[in-house]
Amino acid sequence: MIPPAFEYVRAASVDEALAHLAKYGDDARLLAGGHSLLPLMRLRLAAPRVLVDIGRIRELAYVRAEGGELAIGALTTHHAVEQAAAVATAARALADAASVLGDPQVRNRGTIGGELAHADPAADYGAVVLALGGTVTAAGRGGRRTVAIDDWVRGPFTTALQPGEILLEYRAPAAAAREGSVYRKFARRASDYGMVGVAVRLGLGADGRCTSARIALSCVSDQPVRAQAAEAALAGRAPEGDAVREAAAVVLQGVRVADDPFCPADYRTHLAQVETARAIAEAAARARAA
């Protein structure tokens, strides 16, 4: 269908965008790539009165490695994330996710900021940023503030972003030596949302034991989940054999697992365990090579 009518304003800068948001308040929605919002509007499931197009704020499209961190501007497309050399070395799991997210056309338009702000529980980046750690920076009328990634998602389609704020940047700690990350997505069909997505970031000591482990999953519940019990199972152990099995076994401990006719909860739980074990092995291999 044709989307419902709306007023369209374009922001050339973050300040302009903030001014529009201040002016229109709850009536306004930000439009970046539009690949989450426009389909909802075409199905008439969303009807914002004003669209504030921030897609041309070029200052928000960047990937930079600086001071042991990887900084990605909110309007960086998935394709740019997938292609960026800095992402491949500093946060490989992000490139993994960017390469399996949607399809080539979607990756050309969709942005990391849009994906993080939309906070779809099935979105691939949701798990990746939780596993990588780091922060999200937002701007509002009162200035800028930074939110720890663990505090970012507050519920299904809900984030720490306040009304009137714009997401500016995601910043991840860059991979150090003997550190590796991976994102594995299991979908029924190419381009689909996953049935399970698992992101793992591992650091290994010289003895091959885990010095750090962060594990997170998307598509398994009503929001991305961090698997702290699984992380604990790996702590100080070599990521192989029983350690991996034990970590995988508790990966969804305490999680209310999504259940639908095409992916029942028991299967999803099992799949998360299988994929977690595989992701740990891949992350470990990458860490050893790093």
Partner: peptide, 27 residues
């Protein structure tokens, strides 16, 4: 389609393939 799945509407916008059913002319 109306869910940006089928790709029949694909065109190049500034050199990149996009699904023109999911891009506003204004964009």
């Amino acid at each position: 389609c109306d869910t940006s799945n089928c790709g029949a509407c694909t065109v190049l916008l500034d050199g990149d393939a996009v699904k023109s059913c999911t891009v506003l002319a204004a964009q």
